[in-house]
Protein backbone atom coordinates (compact mmCIF):
# COMPACT_ATOMS: atom_id res chain seq x y z
CA UNK A 1 0.00 0.00 0.00
CA UNK A 2 1.23 3.40 -0.85
CA UNK A 3 1.29 5.94 1.91
CA UNK A 4 -0.18 9.31 1.07
CA UNK A 5 2.23 12.08 1.78
CA UNK A 6 -0.38 14.65 0.90
CA UNK A 7 -3.95 13.49 0.95
CA UNK A 8 -5.06 13.43 -2.69
CA UNK A 9 -3.65 10.23 -4.17
CA UNK A 10 -1.93 10.82 -7.46
CA UNK A 11 -2.20 7.21 -8.57
CA UNK A 12 -4.38 4.41 -7.32
CA UNK A 13 -2.72 1.28 -8.63
CA UNK A 14 0.70 1.72 -7.07
CA UNK A 15 0.51 -1.35 -4.87
CA UNK A 16 -0.02 -3.70 -7.78
CA UNK A 17 3.53 -3.31 -9.12
CA UNK A 18 5.18 -6.69 -9.36
CA UNK A 19 8.72 -7.34 -8.31
CA UNK A 20 11.21 -9.54 -10.02
CA UNK A 21 13.25 -10.27 -6.94
CA UNK A 22 11.89 -13.06 -4.83
CA UNK A 23 12.00 -13.26 -1.07
CA UNK A 24 10.39 -11.21 1.65
CA UNK A 25 10.09 -7.45 1.42
CA UNK A 26 9.89 -5.19 4.40
CA UNK A 27 8.03 -1.95 4.74
CA UNK A 28 10.32 0.45 6.58
CA UNK A 29 8.86 2.49 9.41
CA UNK A 30 8.79 6.15 8.51
CA UNK A 31 8.30 9.51 10.15
CA UNK A 32 7.16 12.39 8.00
CA UNK A 33 7.84 15.84 9.35
CA UNK A 34 6.49 19.03 7.93
CA UNK A 35 8.72 22.06 7.80
CA UNK A 36 7.91 25.44 6.34
CA UNK A 37 9.75 24.77 3.10
CA UNK A 38 9.81 20.99 2.82
CA UNK A 39 8.57 17.63 4.03
CA UNK A 40 11.22 15.42 5.59
CA UNK A 41 10.80 11.65 5.46
CA UNK A 42 12.89 9.54 7.85
CA UNK A 43 12.91 5.80 7.18
CA UNK A 44 14.53 3.11 9.33
CA UNK A 45 16.38 0.83 6.92
CA UNK A 46 19.07 -1.06 8.85
CA UNK A 47 21.55 -3.23 6.97
CA UNK A 48 21.40 -1.40 3.65
CA UNK A 49 24.44 0.29 2.18
CA UNK A 50 23.93 3.76 0.71
CA UNK A 51 24.70 2.70 -2.87
CA UNK A 52 22.05 -0.04 -2.72
CA UNK A 53 19.18 2.40 -2.21
CA UNK A 54 17.03 3.28 -5.21
CA UNK A 55 14.76 6.27 -5.03
CA UNK A 56 12.38 6.96 -7.89
CA UNK A 57 9.88 9.69 -8.45
CA UNK A 58 7.47 9.22 -11.31
CA UNK A 59 3.96 10.54 -11.94
CA UNK A 60 3.56 11.72 -8.38
CA UNK A 61 4.68 8.40 -6.90
CA UNK A 62 7.81 8.23 -4.81
CA UNK A 63 9.33 4.76 -4.45
CA UNK A 64 12.14 3.81 -2.11
CA UNK A 65 13.84 0.47 -2.40
CA UNK A 66 16.79 -0.71 -0.31
CA UNK A 67 18.57 -3.88 -1.25
CA UNK A 68 19.74 -5.97 1.69
CA UNK A 69 22.48 -8.49 1.09
CA UNK A 70 21.63 -12.02 2.17
CA UNK A 71 23.60 -13.05 5.22
CA UNK A 72 25.81 -16.06 5.13
CA UNK A 73 24.37 -18.73 7.34
CA UNK A 74 27.49 -19.12 9.41
CA UNK A 75 26.65 -21.63 12.09
CA UNK A 76 23.28 -22.46 13.52
CA UNK A 77 20.69 -19.94 14.67
CA UNK A 78 20.00 -19.79 18.37
CA UNK A 79 17.66 -16.85 18.02
CA UNK A 80 16.30 -15.33 14.86
CA UNK A 81 14.15 -12.26 15.19
CA UNK A 82 14.77 -10.27 12.12
CA UNK A 83 14.47 -11.59 8.65
CA UNK A 84 16.54 -10.45 5.74
CA UNK A 85 14.79 -8.95 2.79
CA UNK A 86 14.66 -5.77 0.78
CA UNK A 87 12.99 -2.64 2.05
CA UNK A 88 10.30 -1.25 -0.21
CA UNK A 89 7.73 1.45 0.16
CA UNK A 90 5.77 3.77 -2.11
CA UNK A 91 4.27 7.16 -1.38
CA UNK A 92 1.74 9.25 -3.22
CA UNK A 93 3.10 12.75 -3.35
CA UNK A 94 0.98 15.81 -4.01
CA UNK A 95 1.67 18.48 -6.57
CA UNK A 96 2.71 20.79 -3.73
CA UNK A 97 6.08 18.98 -3.79
CA UNK A 98 8.77 19.81 -6.31
CA UNK A 99 9.57 16.31 -7.60
CA UNK A 100 12.70 17.41 -9.45
CA UNK A 101 14.38 18.70 -6.28
CA UNK A 102 13.99 15.67 -3.99
CA UNK A 103 17.26 14.81 -2.24
CA UNK A 104 18.28 12.01 0.11
CA UNK A 105 20.99 10.99 2.54
CA UNK A 106 21.67 7.82 4.52
CA UNK A 107 23.44 7.43 7.85
CA UNK A 108 23.41 4.81 10.61
CA UNK A 109 20.61 2.83 9.01
CA UNK A 110 18.28 5.80 8.57
CA UNK A 111 17.34 7.20 5.19
CA UNK A 112 16.44 10.90 5.17
CA UNK A 113 14.49 12.27 2.22
CA UNK A 114 13.99 15.97 1.63
CA UNK A 115 10.88 16.85 -0.37
CA UNK A 116 10.90 20.57 -1.04
CA UNK A 117 7.60 22.34 -1.49
CA UNK A 118 6.95 24.24 -4.68
CA UNK A 119 7.41 28.01 -4.39
CA UNK A 120 3.68 28.67 -4.60
CA UNK A 121 2.88 26.92 -1.32
CA UNK A 122 5.86 28.08 0.74
CA UNK A 123 4.94 30.58 3.38
CA UNK A 124 5.83 34.10 2.37
CA UNK A 125 6.08 36.97 4.73
CA UNK A 126 4.88 40.21 3.28
CA UNK A 127 6.57 43.23 4.66
CA UNK A 128 4.36 46.17 5.42
CA UNK A 129 5.83 49.48 4.44
CA UNK A 130 5.11 52.48 6.54
CA UNK A 131 3.84 55.31 4.40
Amino acid sequence: MATDIIDKPAATDVATTEHTRTGPMYRPDVDIIERPDELTVLADMPGVSADEIDINFENGVLTIHGKVEARQSDGSFLRQEYGVGDFHRTFNVSKAIDGTAISAEYADGVLTLHLPKVEAVKPHKIAVKAS
Binding site: P46, G75, S76, F77, E81, Y82, D108, G109, V110
Partner: peptide, 23 residues
Amino acid sequence: PTLDVTETESGVTVRAEVPGIDP
Protein backbone atom coordinates in the same frame (compact mmCIF):
# COMPACT_ATOMS: atom_id res chain seq x y z
CA PRO B 1 16.27 -3.87 18.77
CA THR B 2 15.68 -7.21 17.12
CA LEU B 3 18.47 -9.74 17.54
CA ASP B 4 19.86 -12.68 15.64
CA VAL B 5 22.17 -15.03 17.51
CA THR B 6 24.19 -17.66 15.67
CA GLU B 7 26.64 -20.17 17.01
CA THR B 8 29.66 -21.47 15.14
CA GLU B 9 32.36 -23.87 16.22
CA SER B 10 34.57 -21.13 17.57
CA GLY B 11 32.19 -18.45 18.71
CA VAL B 12 28.82 -16.80 18.98
CA THR B 13 27.72 -14.01 16.63
CA VAL B 14 25.01 -11.55 17.58
CA ARG B 15 23.47 -9.14 15.10
CA ALA B 16 21.16 -6.36 16.25
CA GLU B 17 19.21 -3.89 14.15
CA VAL B 18 19.81 -0.47 15.63
CA PRO B 19 18.82 2.10 12.99
CA GLY B 20 19.20 5.72 14.01
CA ILE B 21 21.29 4.98 17.07
CA ASP B 22 24.62 6.68 17.44
CA PRO B 23 27.29 3.98 18.03
